[in-house]
Structures are given as C-alpha cells and as structure tokens.
C-alpha cells in the first residue's frame, strides 16, 4: 500500500513520465500532472465584472519576474495556450465555411460575418505567435480539428442563418467560458504573487490583458449571434447541446494531446 503510493509519487516526479516518442507520435493521455487539478476550473461563467483586479495588473513597471514560474504554472500555460490555438483554428474555419452560403441568402449579414471572421483570424495569429515564442507544441489533433471545424461550419452554413448563429452562440459560450476560466486562474496567481511581494513580470501581465481582450470579443460574438436569431434555430436545443458537448470534448482532448 505504502510502497504503491511511493511508487506513484516517484512516477509523478519522474522525468520519464513523458518520452519523446509520445511527444512526436502519441502525446500521452496518461500524463500524471497536476494540470488536471486545474482542468475543472478552466471554465467559468462568472461575470467578468466580479473578477479580482490585482494592483499588479496596472503596474507601470516593465520589470522582469525574478522567480521562475512553478512547474504546475508552466504546465497550465502550456496546455491552456495549446487549447486556445486549436479553438481559434476551429473558429476561423467555421466562419470561413459559413460565410458564402449565409451572405448569399442574407447580404445584410456580410459586414457582421466579415467582422467576426477577421477578429477570429486575429486571435488565431496571436496564439500562433505565442506558441512559437514560448515553444509550446501544437495539438496533435490539428488535422482532425481542421476537418471537424470545416464540416461544422459548412453544415450549419447550409442549414441557414439561424443554425449558423446557433452554432456561433454555442461555440462562443464554451470558448468564452474557457477564456474566462483562464483569466481567473491567472488573476489568482497575480494576486498570490502580489501578496508575497513578488514581481509579476511583463509576460504574465500582457498575457492576462490579451486573454481578457479576446474573451470580451468572443462574448460580443455571442451577443451578436443571439441578436441575429440564434434562438430561433430548429432544432435549437439539439444543435446547442451537440455543439457545446463537441467543444467540451475537443477542449478536453486538446489539453492532453
């Protein structure tokens, strides 16, 4: 009993729990990391107005953080940014494939579709740059998400305006909640650092700002979709539930592989 426990803790601290074979060929589902502890709180539906606002956020200094981030924090950022990139890839593809049929039958939606598409393209390139900069691997499911998102965009686009908007609503609800959760985790770190009198550092401060901005844009998309008749889609309940659980599954997988 005790030895099994010891073995597990040894395994957790062992650098071999992830071999390069897994990095290249099959990133492991079985990684034993504390990242899982975070997984449940990376989604939050709390209003942005209630989130803590540590003083450090407004600090004008451009000082570097002197203490290294903990391994758990590094792992959290690693998988969070990976999921975000995958999500934005999907968003870009969904809008790209929805746009032609939707704007054909509803020309007045052209500016809105274009506006949302270009914001998603901006998000996507932001996360691409962050991944390259912080040397984070993209999700191994990249080709799968590409195909799935294109199909989803194409199908809901063909189903008409309401279905397309219901798709946007469902996706943005999940994604918005996801960013919201991440912002909250980062803010709680900032608060903790502040209480310990540590320098937060430009990197984290900038990241919180980026995530907040993108979160707000996603929530705007959500409102716009509802305004354009998302709730009138038939069958709304089914579409909403199917797409949202699809998003949840995709997030779960991308955090891991």
């Amino acid at each position: 009993m005790n030895s099994a426990k010891a073995l597990r803790s040894l395994y957790k601290s062992s650098p071999y729990s992830q071999t390069p074979l897994c990095d290249f060929l099959l990133p492991s589902f079985t990684q034993v990391t504390s990242r899982r502890d975070y997984a449940s709180i990376t989604t939050s539906s709390e209003s942005p107005k209630t989130e803590p606002a540590p003083e450090a956020l407004k600090s004008e200094t451009t000082a570097k953080r002197r203490r290294p981030l903990t391994k758990e924090q590094q792992q959290f950022l690693d998988s969070a940014l990976r999921v975000n990139q995958a999500g934005e890839l999907a968003a870009v593809l969904i809008y790209r494939h929805q746009t032609p049929p939707i704007t054909r039958s509803h020309p007045h939606l052209r500016p809105l579709m274009h506006h949302m598409y270009s914001q998603e393209a901006g998000h996507f390139s932001t996360f691409n740059a962050l991944l390259a900069k912080h040397r984070i691997r993209p999700t191994a499911m990249y080709p799968v998400w590409t195909a799935a998102a294109s199909t989803l965009g194409w199908v809901t686009g063909l189903m008409g305006r309401e279905a397309a908007m219901a798709c946007t609503e469902a996706v943005e609800t999940e994604i918005g909640g996801h960013y919201n959760g991440q912002v909250r985790v980062l803010l709680s770190w900032l608060k903790e650092m502040e209480e310990k009198g540590e320098e937060v550092g430009e990197e984290l401060r900038e990241l919180v700002d980026t995530l907040k901005r993108i979160r707000d844009e996603e929530l705007e998309h959500l409102d716009e979709a509802v305004g354009e008749g998302a709730k009138e889609a038939r069958p709304y309940e089914l579409l909403n539930r199917a797409i949202r659980s699809g998003c949840k599954g995709a997030i779960w997988i991308s955090e891991r592989v």
Binding site: S14, P15, S17, K64, L69, K71, H134, I136
Partner: peptide, 25 residues
C-alpha cells in the same frame, strides 16, 4: 531501472526546454 538514479539526469527534468518557455528568468 532509470529513475532510482536521478543523478545523471538534468535536475530540472522536464522543465528544461519543455512546457511554457519563459523569457523572464
């Protein structure tokens, strides 16, 4: 057989060049 002997392994293990790479330290 490997992990009883962590001495020859970089002490920082996975965090060397793995995971989020920070430029601040």
């Amino acid at each position: 057989r490997l992990y009883s002997s962590s001495n020859f392994v970089p002490s920082c293990g996975l965090s060397c060049g793995r995971f989020y790479h920070s430029y601040e330290h």
